[in-house]
Simulated scan of single mutants.
Amino acid sequence: MTSIQQPIKATLVKRSLTKSKNRTQSLAQHFGYDSLINSNNDLSLAKRLFNSQQLQYQREQHNIEKIFKLTYDECKNETTTEPDPDWLVRFIEMAKQVHSPSMQKLWARTLKKELTRPGTTSLKTLTILITMTQRETLLFQRIISVCCQIGKNNDKK
């Protein structure tokens, strides 16, 4: 390595460390876990716990409201039936955890499909879906898009 490359590498490492500290602090603040980082121990542990839980509840509320709004926007007044109440409760509990806009759109399409054609999405499918990242979901969609059906055989190839 030349003497010119060494300072550049050291500078990149230093920037990376600074960015990771800033990112960690930002994430901790977003989730309400930044008290020790910011030396802000004015509040009791119980009060800090309450505050972080309130932030979490607000994020969950925002997430599920966004998914219902996206579902509403997706609907074109198709005929629907009442979804299975147990399915709907579990869907809502899982959907509250969906933060990214593209994943929220996927969950909205899933809800719309269940409203228009009940029983099309199993709870097991939702359980798998909630464990997938956005990247994994996109990859899975690409894999599914190359599946085909031959003749009257319902098995996908």
Rank of each mutant, 00 (worst) to 15 (best):
L55F: 09
I92T: 08
E82V: 08
W87D: 07
F140I: 00
Q134R: 06
I67C: 04
P101S: 07
D86L: 12
Q134D: 08
M94N: 11
K21H: 12
A28P: 13
A46H: 13
Q6G: 02
L45N: 15
G32T: 02
L45C: 11
L43W: 14
D84C: 08
I150H: 10
S16C: 12
K14G: 00
H99A: 03
T110N: 12
M132I: 00
R90C: 12
T11Q: 12
T131I: 00
S35L: 08
L43N: 13
N51D: 15
N51P: 14
A108F: 08
T127R: 06
R109G: 02
K21I: 02
S16F: 15
Q134H: 07
R109H: 09
D155P: 07
Q54N: 14
V89H: 10
K21W: 12
L17H: 13
E65P: 07
S44E: 04
R90K: 15
T71P: 11
T125F: 10
E93P: 02
V146S: 09
Q5S: 10
D73T: 03
Q56S: 09
T71N: 09
D155N: 12
T121I: 01
T131P: 01
I92F: 02
Q29G: 01
E74W: 11
M94Y: 12
S52C: 14
P7T: 04
K96A: 06
A108C: 03
E78Q: 06
L139N: 08
I4L: 13
T24N: 05
L111I: 03
S122M: 04
Q141P: 00
H30D: 13
L70H: 03
T24P: 03
K21F: 12
P85K: 09
Q29K: 14
D86S: 03
S20I: 12
T131M: 00
H62A: 13
Q56V: 02
P85M: 05
R48V: 12
L70N: 05
N40R: 07
N77V: 00
M1Y: 11
S26E: 13
E65N: 10
I67W: 04
A10Y: 07
K21Y: 14
V146K: 13
N153V: 02
I4E: 14
T137G: 03
L55E: 06
L111E: 08
F50Q: 14
T24S: 05
C147A: 02
F91G: 01
L138N: 10
E78G: 01
R90N: 15
N40F: 04
Y72H: 09
F31K: 05
K112T: 06
I130S: 02
A28Q: 13
F50T: 10
Y72Q: 02
T71S: 11
L129A: 10
P83R: 03
C148L: 11
R59Y: 15
K113G: 07
I4N: 14
S122R: 07
